[in-house]
Nucleic acid binder design. Structure first.
Length: 277
DNA sequence: CCTGCTACCTGATGGC
DNA sequence: TGCCATCAGGTAGCAG
């Protein structure tokens, strides 16, 4: 569940299922999901703990326990499922990587690609990545000034910088592309070369794109009871991502795809130019 | 410190 | 049909 809007929607939807509940039993069905911690160590840390709160740090989901923290990173394909009866989560035909039982039911974690992780740490900041996160794109601290500050520090292409979680936390490939399209900025532009006007436009675009994305992710909200649930309807708001060869919604020029940092970048070669505004 | 690159996994898709 | 290449919403860890 890739970027911050998706994780935020999962956090909000998950809270009523598990907040305040005690994790009575833990089942690790696939060792890689908790790696490099061992299943035994994971189980000993988590079993019997009470979930005090659920929050999001960048793209990390954090469950604060009465003892330590459960930290989930979904990477590209991790997901959560809910079972009203724990026995259903443990049925042989259900492929889950980790199952957390509570009095009310069972929470299942699954990642078919096994890039994601669900791990226990004494504190959230002990999870690699979390302590180094930059300012969260959803936080009030994300302002035109803070964006200007991180832009000044980097000579990399602005698209790459936007995806750097140590600079700004929460944006991934989709919403970095969309933000730059909205702000009419060339993704290859070096960060420190953005003008104050471009910075203001980019800040506004990021805030707007993330707000709309969260709305999409919450309507409808994730249905953890549906084993095949996934975010739907996001495509409707996309103007650049995945639209190679399709006309730009502003000017009709075909959207182009290039490679930056081994990832695809989509942009309009006509309206996303340094001198186009 | 900054930057770029690769490894980590699995499945879907398209060309031949 | 089978096989191969390419692509996928991400990050950790390493080298320069």
């Amino acid at each position: 569940m890739p970027e911050a809007p998706e994780v935020e929607a999962v956090v909000r939807t998950l809270r009523p299922y598990i907040q305040g509940e005690k994790i009575s039993r833990v089942h690790v069905r696939h060792v890689i999901a908790v790696g490099p911690q061992t299943p035994g160590g994971f189980r000993r840390s988590v079993e019997g703990a009470r979930i005090l709160g659920v929050s999001r740090h960048g793209k990390y989901l954090v469950m604060r326990l009465n003892q330590g923290c459960l930290v989930i990173h979904f990477k590209l394909s991790g997901t959560l499922l809910w079972f009203d009866r724990a026995a259903d989560a443990l049925a042989p035909r259900i492929h889950l990587d980790v199952v957390l039982e509570t009095r009310r039911g069972a929470l299942g974690y699954f990642d078919r690609r096994h890039l994601g992780r669900i791990r226990w740490f004494p504190r959230a900041d002990d999870a690699p990545g979390i302590s180094r996160l930059g300012i969260d794109a959803y936080s009030p601290g994300f302002t035109p000034d803070s964006l200007a500050s991180v832009c000044r520090q980097s000579r990399r292409a602005i698209k790459i910088m936007l995806m750097d979680q140590t600079k700004i936390a929460g944006l991934g490939n989709i919403y970095a592309n969309e933000s730059l399209w909205n702000a009419r900025i060339d993704p290859r532009r070096r960060s420190y070369r953005l003008t104050p006007l471009q910075i203001r436009r980019l800040h506004k675009a990021v805030v707007s794109v993330l707000r709309r994305a969260l709305e999409c992710c919450l309507h409808p909200a994730p249905d953890f009871r549906d084993p095949h649930w996934w975010f739907a309807g996001l495509e409707g708001m996309l103007r650049a991502y995945g639209r190679e060869g399709m006309p730009c919604a502003r000017c009709g020029t075909n959207i182009r795809r290039i490679e930056q940092g081994q990832r695809s970048t989509f942009f309009c070669p006509r309206c996303q130019r340094p001198d186009s505004h």
